[in-house]
Design a protein around this nucleic acid. Structure first.
Lengths: 210, 210, 210, 210
DNA sequence: ATTTAATCGAGACGGTACGTCATGTCTTCGG
DNA sequence: CCGAAGACATGACGTACCGTCTCGATTAAAT
């Protein structure tokens, strides 16, 4: 624990990127290993071999460090696919989103992060921005589908986005139901308004209108 | 602030219901008035004119007090209607749920409560139970509809429930999109799989983002 | 170091005298053992097995604790004798004062205390009070002598007091000259205005004109 | 406050005397204006428009800067007179010493300096040297008097010196009694062993207390 | 009628984390 | 290559809550 610190060289009057890195790494590590107890700034600083002041110099709040640490590492986990088929793209996106929450270190870190966000105004705002980015990505994906005629022109894309991320966060945080591939399949169908996955073999999927 | 305490009479060796009430009232008041800063036990006890031990005697954790305070006041806001029509029942339920979150003092209190839940294992568990009850109510409503033939037999009721509550909590906590009647209309349609409300003039809740 | 803390029993809502004692003892111990480095509140609290808040609850500043600790232990080192002879009383007083500064743990503790007083407005005030008490004792001794005719009626007692304590503190803090018995002898003579101890027969001491 | 820094020109690779001056001036100014809070190196550097390192380059410790600043300005305040009369010389010396402590900026600066000396080993040593010089001057004055027959041959000159400076520092730092001309008169008499000023109307410097 | 026992307001206690401040060292970069 | 600028590691500061504890009073129930 609190690895012996790699004897960072000073960088003089300029920001020490190595210390910066060490802080993010330590934060992510503690976030991941955390057993539910809050991650403290002291602990991060100590684990990074850094003075507390150095943390406070660059981040306005503990939460900002944590979110930064998470984004820094897990930022590109859910790219938006573009295969030409709305259904395929959406299904891939949802599956990837669900999967990302099952994998370490993202899952416990994310949960701790939400915990901290509840206490921290700065972090709450950062989280809002963070989720807004994700939502925008998903909305673009849906907009492509609508423009390609795969969704009605008047589809409420924002509501669709919120249904998807709503289910995700709701289940992720409460943990009362799984976020597995079957759930992803059914959620895709539900949002797109049909039942293709409902009773498995479904040769003539009951489209009808749409 | 911290009203002068109404000189409660002693009740001797029996539990003092007035003190009990005062605690719940103080908790709800602080919960409601809270500007994001955490509600502390000391503050509740002081506001209620009560010793801290009296709080700890009757509730295992701060969260328990807060949730109790909220339930005590806002507990029965969302009854499950039963008109015979799934669509009507569901629409009424969703609308009532959305409305309940717009009204004082529930909204800020609920938000603060979730904040506290993120820090408090006991409260998190209580919240799980609390939401489970609500989910069960909604699920029963849907099950009635399925049994009445208004939903396919293989409908994933749990997913439907989570889509509805997911949208609700997601929007409620992030505040990036409205929980108005139009949203309730569209959510009802979306979950039931048709577009009855789709051709109405679409609200331009363009962004909002809190 | 930081002895294992004797498992003090709680005293409920009343001040815990044992904790109080432990703090003073720890403070004096650290003061005595201090090698010149400042004594910190954290260290005192830790050594006393006490929370920092408990220290701050009862003393307004670190210095107050230190002075309290010193007075508590060394308070009665210099009693005022009353033999009937001013010269004897004064000589005894000065000798006792000089001696007290040579003994452990007073000396290093006192020096550290002055160091801290230089930093701490509260403590400076307390020191003023502390020294005022000592000065008053000495002044009373001199006043008795004056009333007994051993000093002229118009003798400036305050100046005499300050000459004695001035020499004491000046030498004590700077350490450039001894505070031994010979010095006490000569100081007594000097203040009383003759040369009895001047170790040479001094029949016609240069008074006269000038 | 912290005057806008006079746009010193760089002097290339040689020590910048202007910066040197600016540091001493800033130090003395802060020392003088200080309200009891410690004078920090950062503050001096900032007020002088100088990097901290520039301070540390030329002085080993904060105290050294402060003392240097004080000597630089107030160094020659107390010259040793030589009129041929011990009494006159001594009286002039004591009066000058007392006066020097009443004048700005010496007094608050000196007090702050002693405060800092208590924390700073380097400065303490410098102070010892500083006072030793003053003491030597006074001792020489007394030695002249003894050699001239105005003091007995066996007079304890060191004790006399310490009585004078003892009274001075004791009253200066504690502030419980004045350092006015009347006190200087009486101290002169007391040290020389007579009461020439004793029958003058005695000042009622009753308290003062700082 | 007298004990006994539980509740109440109060607040001290041992802790942990907070965010700020000053120290003295170190490196960059403009002049 | 000096000097300003300022980042860095360190560690004390004083405050805020936590959850536990003990008091002394008050009053109901048990004797």
């Amino acid at each position: 624990m609190t690895q012996p610190r790699a004897e960072r060289p000073h960088t003089g009057r300029r920001r020490n990127e190595a210390a910066h890195r060490a802080i993010l790494d330590a934060a992510l590590r503690l976030l991941t290993e955390s057993d539910g107890t809050p991650v403290t700034i002291d602990a991060i600083a100590r684990a990074a071999g850094v003075g507390k002041q150095t943390v406070y110099r660059w981040w306005p709040s503990k939460g900002a460090v944590l979110l930064d640490a998470l984004i820094d590492r897990a930022g590109q986990d859910v790219p938006a696919p573009d295969t030409g088929s709305l259904r395929d793209d959406l299904h891939a996106f949802i599956t990837a989103t669900f999967d990302s929450a099952q994998r370490t270190p993202s899952a416990p870190a994310l949960r701790t992060l939400v915990r901290e966000a509840a206490r921290d105004v700065h972090l709450a705002e950062l989280m809002r921005t963070f989720t807004a980015t994700r939502r925008a990505t998903l909305r673009d994906l849906l907009a492509r589908g609508r423009d390609g005629g795969e969704l009605p022109d008047d589809a409420d894309l924002d509501l669709m986005v919120d249904q998807i991320y709503g289910v995700f966060w709701y289940r992720f945080l409460l943990g009362h139901a799984p976020l597995d591939h079957a759930a992803a399949d059914r959620l895709t169908d539900s949002v797109l308004g049909d039942r293709r996955h409902a009773d498995m073999p479904q040769p003539s999927h009951a489209r009808g209108d749409e």
